[in-house]
Design a protein around this nucleic acid. Sequence first.
RNA 1: GGGGGCAUAGCUCAGUUGGUUAGAGCGCACGCUUCACAUGCGUGAGGUCACAGGUUCAAGUCCUGUUGUCCCCACCA
Length: 877
Amino acid sequence: MKDMQTTYSPREFEDKIYAEWMKKGCFEAKIDPAKVPFTVMMPPPNVTGQLHIGHAMDETMQDIVVRFKRMQGYSVLWQPGVDHASLATEHKIVEKLREEGTTKEELGREEFLRRAWAWKEQYGGKIVEQLKKLGCSCDWSRLAFTMDEKCSRAVREAFFRLYDAGLIYRGSRIINWCPDCKTALSDEEVAWSEDAGHFWYFKYPVEGSDEFLTIATTRPETMLGDTAVAVNPADGRYSALVGKTLILPLVGRRIPVVADDYVDPAFGTGAVKITPAHDPNDFEVGLRHDLPVIRILNDDGTVNEQGGAYAGLGRYEARKRIVKDMQALGLLVKVENHTHNVGHCHRCNATLEPIVSKQWFVSMQTLAKPAIDAVAKNKTKFTPDRFAKIYYNWLENIRDWCISRQLWWGHRIPVWYCAKCGAEIVTPKDDPTVCPRCGCTELHRDEDCLDTWFSSALWPFSTLGWPEETPEYKYFYPTDVLVTGYDIIPFWVMRMMVSGIRYTKKVPFRDVLIHGLVRDEQGRKMSKSLGNGIDPIEVIEKYGADSLRLALISGVAPGNDTRMSAAKFEASRNFLNKIWNASRFVLMNAKGTDVPKDIAGMKLAPADRWIISRLMATIREVTVALEKYDLGIAADKLTRFAWDDFCDWYIELSKPALYGDDPEKKRLALGVLMFVLSSLLKLLHPFAPYITEEIYGYLPNAEGMIISADYPRYNSKLAYKSEAKAFEGVIELIKAVRAMKVAVNCPPSKKVHLFLVTDARRLITVNKGAILRLAGAAEIDFAESGSEAGEKTVSQVTGVAQIFVPLGDLVNIEEERARLEKEIARIEGEIARAEGKLANRNFVAKAPKKLVDDEYAKRDKYLEMKKMVEEQLKTLL
RNA sequence: GGGGGCAUAGCUCAGUUGGUUAGAGCGCACGCUUCACAUGCGUGAGGUCACAGGUUCAAGUCCUGUUGUCCCCACCA
């Protein structure tokens, strides 16, 4: 066995260890009837995507839970996969085609798709390699893709079932149209921003009079499609005009003035031009008043033939010309600056146009109800539970979901139209060839694709083979926990719940663990335009994957956003370096000593029992925290135990035995060190899999790999509560001596002589070596009183002993007296606080007895301490 | 307009069903080449837990309100 290197250098072993895990099939999910399954579905990253820091956090959280459960003995499936991301991917390919000087239309659908698949094969899946670097322990042999055969079948089946139930329909509605991507977007895909714009006031002449009606608009070009002007029925200013006819300027169309509650009399002029084809509210008004719908824009955002003289102009050019022309006619009243919310394409950021268009929709209301109930009845629980409110909020106000996209990369809508009779044909499996209504064989398939989220919504079961009742599906479904960010609750969580319940009659997951966003050092969102993103792969190269993982979950409360910076990676790296060196220390000394099998049967010293007691407490705390998905708390408890208790105290406490000449004591100390170290490594493994696996490999006779080890379990026989508490007295004593030395400027290297007045002579004698070493003392004498230490002494009262240190000329009597007076003041404060509480009759009567007793004991302890310090002070007068 | 988050040490944040003296990391001060580790060790300074009420024997924690701040939804043309 080679020795460990002096510093933690993750690059030396991380890749090697991952390769070993893969080689041994450590992540493979097995259907094992003897075990309880535990299933997690990885939110599939975009196939063309790069791992960003947000993914890294999401995947780290999943990996921690999954490794924990695997070690606990569950049969774990962590299902990985990637998403075809229809719009994002098609956008990239179109860009590339543009660079080559061609377009998708020129290539044609078939050739375009051939290119897209080739591109996916070449550039896709890079993210899989990045996930491996992070240490993700998913079952790669089951890697799924939302467009693979399995998932495509599920999509087809799901579409058929909804269509068959009348829950999918095709209709003309106002949708969000991206003129650059030339596709519809769902409401959820719209990115809103406050943009500076203008408010143009136009006069529309009233037919057969000299009057005008003034309206205000932010999009003058849409006037080409106006088919009415609306006013509020209660608005006295305009009541005479209701029912009259206006002449739409520039176009000459006769349009009515209608009364509708939708109009806010206090906003603008109180009169609204109505363009049913290009505004969702206007569309509704149009339906109520039976107005014509005149679409004036082409798919690319240019004005169509309805625009008369403006036909062919781009939307902004048309706007300019119309304003100019209105002004020329004297119909422009005024222009105001106006900032308003404008929708943008989440992919290309182009300003969206609301356009009336024939699209496919899923009616959501009936589907939403069971999904709401499932959470209300706790069949699925959100962690933290406040996110259930957000979920309800969405589902209770749900609108129909536009699922058609004018794209080619994706699941083509499985609807055929008969060329002869126009019948719509939808089948669950095979493509139809004959119209069932008229027998015609000329069928045309719908040109459009489904929204990517339609297939993502099926992810928890499509990956398991649904609609087939595969063994995987039966064993691993429903899944246990879904881990994702709060930003995709509406896109994904909600839709998985809806589809899962609809198709499988079961909730797709029992828990939803929601996390926040990773922000930059200044709390800003990371974005390409700001260039403030942190590349997780760079972090891994510099600090190691384990450091990255720890940094991402430490000090973060569930669901909260977190800021990342180099300081955090360094802190984690420093901690892991500490673990590395502590392990190195133990293993260097252990030289083949095995981890003892029966720790309780050994003759343990007080310090041993203390560290084992602390270990047990930590096991319990960490396990409880992990079961509640409190990853930040779990990591904190582990860090405190590892660094403070084990490294700073126990290792130092064990040195006298290790370096002493009693082989039995040495053997015992090594046994405890090995036991605690191996337990610690296991506890830490879900958080920092690489370093723990690497160190585990250095343990003598370590059976296999740490990944397959059992997670440590709390053992009440090893709790040693009262003994551990007693030993805290020794720690307190050591700390007191150190502080005394600092207070009187005694150099640490100068060993002092301790005189102790104490009842705990046995405890101190047993731990004498450790006390001498850690407190920086040369000798300990027990005394009946401080005077035995001489005239000039520094003293301190602790719970276990009264400490006297003769420090000769080093002691400045004045300073020491001041120090003691300060100490008395502190003690008096404590006494006053305790007595105040005890003077409260209600406290004594109503608080739990233990608390009251503790308070009495505390008061008495401080009264005693005060007496002792006062006596000491007298000797200095 | 509707909903939600946050407000705790100089900075970034924890604080697990209300219960000892409110914690960590970084920073700061002083001191340490102690044979695992200076990516370290020891000691310390630093907090009226945003504000005002309330519930309770007991509130950083629960309730109400106020202020500040951030986010999501809605989208007044």
